[in-house]
Design a protein around this nucleic acid. Sequence first.
DNA 1: CAGGACCGTGACACAACGTCAACTTTTGCG
DNA 2: CGCAAAAGTTGACGTTGTGTCACGGTCCTG
Lengths: 220, 220
Amino acid sequence: MDAELVRSLSPRRPAGKREQTKVQNRHLILEAARRVFAELGYGATTVRDIIRATPLASGTFYNYFKSKEEVFQAIQDESALRIRPRLHEERAKAATIEEFISGTFLTFFEFVAEDQANFRALRRSTDALHVRMDTPEIIAGFEELRQDIVAATEKGLFPPVDADFLMAAMVGVAFEVAERMLRRSDRGPAEAAAFATALFMGGINALPAGRMGGANGGGA
Amino acid sequence: MDAELVRSLSPRRPAGKREQTKVQNRHLILEAARRVFAELGYGATTVRDIIRATPLASGTFYNYFKSKEEVFQAIQDESALRIRPRLHEERAKAATIEEFISGTFLTFFEFVAEDQANFRALRRSTDALHVRMDTPEIIAGFEELRQDIVAATEKGLFPPVDADFLMAAMVGVAFEVAERMLRRSDRGPAEAAAFATALFMGGINALPAGRMGGANGGGA
DNA sequence: CAGGACCGTGACACAACGTCAACTTTTGCG
DNA sequence: CGCAAAAGTTGACGTTGTGTCACGGTCCTG
């Protein structure tokens, strides 16, 4: 009786054992999946590979996820869930277009740099192939950006742009430049954000002067 | 003897029967794959599904491709092979930055609109997931863009920009805006290209005024 | 402490994978 | 033209992955 009372009143659950293992199992699976995806690549990984990297039985896996796609989604969503509020907040407090833009890009690129392990490993697949997957949570993040643009426009911050296309452009630049940034040692989040911000603020002619080539001298 | 002589001299092969069916089988597989990918989505498709959509035996499939990934690659590469020269030519004859930029985007968006069947179906997977895959031929296209930017810079056309990041930014905008364009009925290649060009020429403030929201009033 | 709810377990039936020995068709050559 | 070697196709097969479910153990509730 006391136990129940305490549990219901306490803000942080002492957690029944049942619930505890549920959280733990989910975590075990996601951790294992991260390792396996990183090692084999997303495409080559099978549900069985993930299960084997876990102390659990195959049936248990299916109590938590329907497929490897769902596991992948969950991993991506975890990242998206961590960064989405930061991005939104950054834009909410922006007083100028430039703050809106640079805040968004800098936050994103810094996150990517920290989160490199997830971001990069999960995008590397077999061979030279590169797979990108937009999960519901990520799509929600895009939609939030669009709405933030609309809101900024209504506040008179932005000119009356096509919010849908502008959102798409920002998303495209963010992901593609982030990827390049990770492959280069001579450019970090600050430089990437400066580049993207200058592009959106004034176009090509406003871009900071940079080395003309890329970092990769070799390659095909 | 005559046969051999004719074959070796003639520029267009009368084609041995062997070689003929080889081309045909490859085509059969790719056509079947296009249909199956479009119907089931890339992720859900199995090699067996593709084979079943073909009059061939399973062993034959493996004479042509190692996996569904390779089939997918071949399909993508076919598209890339069609558009790459057009893009390069467009940029080669550009006398100003604006021609370079708008030529690239307009050509790309027009291609996407024509090629919609391939472009869209192949990117739709199960549920709301969206998969993008960069094949060697596509990567080569990116590299070509980078080199064209370097060349344009050396001709004094471009300011001394970071060609690597600029290439990434253009690629990101191209793909992401293309995707949006396809989902909207109120914007075609011309509008999409105008948008992207204005963005790169002068940043947000130079963008054409557009409806602020997107086309999709509903959604999540 | 008992009974029930909950959930982990691994064996199972089924489907997909990639291979290979046997077979068929084409080609090169006398 | 005919024949032997080369090339290519076929589908059955062993193997591996898939998703389910009846069983059994553990935790919760009263």
